[in-house]
Nucleic acid binder design. Structure first.
Lengths: 202, 202
DNA sequence: CTTTTGTTTAACCATTTAGTTAATTCAAAA
DNA sequence: TTTTGAATTAACTAAATGGTTAAACAAAAG
């Protein structure tokens, strides 16, 4: 037997691949079975329904993603260091999982409630309160400009996520090949923190 | 008879609404027929297939979108004014059509070739060459920092598009209601140009 | 009034798709 | 070696879905 969960894992891997690329409504159970090299009935043997498999994929996509941010954002690093590390880590992670951002954005848009549920079940692990407080402290200390912390966080996320989520569009419009695009993303690892930190300097 | 293209228009409107919200694979012909208040067969009478209706919706989504940018970006405005006007116009437009960004990003991701085709058929109306040249001129004249024009354009798009495309995610994570979010977007109309222009000052 | 032409619908068809069932394979325990 | 129980499959079902057809309908043309 293929015990020790080898089959289950290969199904999960296949489901991840298909769902991340096609989304829930675009994915077919047969595609997943083919990708995993198994019979379609085996999908239902391990996971009961399309919804159930998708839920695990969505959950993992969320976990692979948000938590990696939280660690840095809730750390005790000085603000500017934190921004630099966050952007580097985040762009690197997203580059390694290029389908995740658009997948998450699209599926949350389809059903915002799903995110709310997950956030509750994860006990709001991602709550950038500490980061917001840190920004406010620096403002009061006169170390940085008086900016809206929420706006700043959105800027930071936008500058990291959009180049990955919008890659095919940007490539199409600006006519960039894969090599050019990889270079461009590498540059951003140093340029985006500079821009963000500059925007805070008084 | 409902002549003078009234029916056709109401079908297009319905299709737009459904496709923009659900995407191609998530949309059902029956949903569109119901939304338009007509029989499903009538959809095929006016448009031959799901693909054909979708194509029109995609085309219009692209047209409502890109061209509005081009006008500003290809105008003769001074650089800083251009940035200010572009961001204001773009955030305003996107706010009025909140489903468009994610729809475009998602569908291009599903089939990047579709965009390429459209760009060709639109004879590359959107080519920010003039804007890139303008930035380069300003750099040579020592008026602004030596930045990568492409990176700058990506930053500009990211800061405008992401807050709309990622609205449900941002709302969920930061716990913002509709009123707070609208206010936040209004603030960005003045804050984003400041940030972008600051990032160019030597 | 009748004919003609374009519009709209009810009913239908073929395919796709998620999910089920019953039989089979296979590894390991007895 | 036989038995047992989980893993796997082929074949199937029911519902959904995109698309078609033929008839009904409405309005303009004759």
């Amino acid at each position: 037997m293929s015990r020790d969960g080898k089959t289950e894992q290969s199904i999960k891997d296949a489901a991840k691949k298909i769902f991340l690329r096609k989304g829930f409504s675009g994915a077919r159970m047969q595609d997943i079975a083919d990708e995993a090299g198994i019979n379609k009935a085996l999908l239902h043997y391990y996971f009961r329904s399309k919804e159930k498999i998708f839920d695990q994929v969505f959950q993992e996509a969320l976990e692979t993603f948000f938590p990696r941010i939280i660690e840095v954002i809730n750390s005790d690093l000085p603000l500017f260091d934190k921004i630099t590390v966050f952007v580097r880590e985040y762009i690197t992670t997203l580059t390694q999982h290029p389908y995740i951002p658009l997948f998450i954005l699209h599926e949350i848009s389809q059903d915002p409630q799903r995110l709310i549920q997950k956030l509750i079940s994860m006990q709001n692990e991602f709550r950038p309160q500490k980061f917001i407080a840190q920004i406010q402290t620096e403002i009061k200390a006169g170390m940085i400009k008086s900016v809206s912390p929420v706006q700043f966080i959105i800027n930071m996320l936008a500058l990291c996520i959009f180049p990955i989520a919008g890659k095919p569009m940007i490539q199409g419009v600006l006519g960039l090949d894969e090599i050019q695009y990889r270079l461009l993303l590498e540059q951003r690892i140093t340029e985006v923190p500079k821009l963000l930190i500059d925007s805070l300097k008084p």
